[in-house]
Amino acid sequence: MEMECPYCTGQVEFVSTKQFYGKDYGTNVYVCYPCDAYVGTHGKGKTPLGTLANKQLRSLHMTAHSIFDPLWKGKFRKMGRSGAYRLIQKLMDLPPEKAHIAMFDEEQCRLLISKLKEYRGLN
């Protein structure tokens, strides 16, 4: 799978986690070294887990997950995993295949963070 960096339009490299992290995690990574943008893959395959993300987008993904994940895991869970992802679909008006935080851009992450805070009463 050829991939172009959305930040610099340069060619993205496909490497193993051993090459990228120095340790084999049993997966691969698409990486644009000049932009410090990367995304992991499903297992040893070439299917990306989401979209290529630079440091800012990775930070927004983590923030969104920190608000979202307690809804379906941990001691504060209010719903199962599938219910939580249905909530993302509803809040973001997206079909199931697009309702994944790892696929969101910065604008979508900020919107989801705001909507999740409102939903959870964190505003």
Results as ranks from 00 to 15, higher is better:
residue 73 K to S: 04
residue 49 L to E: 08
residue 4 E to K: 15
residue 33 Y to I: 10
residue 81 R to K: 14
residue 82 S to N: 13
residue 50 G to A: 05
residue 49 L to V: 09
residue 83 G to R: 00
residue 20 F to N: 04
residue 98 K to D: 13
residue 15 V to K: 12
residue 98 K to V: 08
residue 4 E to Q: 15
residue 65 H to K: 15
residue 51 T to D: 09
residue 107 E to S: 14
residue 103 M to Y: 15
residue 49 L to Y: 03
residue 28 N to L: 02
residue 28 N to V: 03
residue 101 I to R: 01
residue 55 K to T: 12
residue 56 Q to W: 04
residue 113 I to L: 06
residue 85 Y to N: 01
residue 13 E to R: 12
residue 78 K to T: 14
residue 111 L to S: 12
residue 119 Y to T: 01
residue 2 E to C: 06
residue 8 C to K: 09
residue 22 G to D: 09
residue 93 D to F: 13
residue 111 L to Q: 14
residue 12 V to I: 10
residue 20 F to S: 03
residue 92 M to Q: 07
residue 22 G to T: 02
residue 97 E to P: 01
residue 51 T to K: 15
residue 60 L to W: 05
residue 1 M to D: 05
residue 31 V to M: 08
residue 28 N to Y: 05
residue 15 V to R: 10
residue 90 K to A: 04
residue 64 A to W: 06
residue 95 P to H: 07
residue 55 K to L: 09
residue 61 H to V: 04
residue 123 N to M: 11
residue 20 F to M: 06
residue 87 L to G: 01
residue 113 I to H: 02
residue 113 I to A: 08
residue 22 G to F: 10
residue 110 R to E: 13
residue 111 L to M: 14
residue 50 G to I: 08
residue 18 K to V: 06
residue 1 M to I: 06
residue 9 T to Q: 14
residue 52 L to E: 11
residue 109 C to T: 08
residue 46 K to N: 10
residue 111 L to E: 15
residue 3 M to S: 00
residue 32 C to A: 08
residue 66 S to K: 13
residue 17 T to S: 14
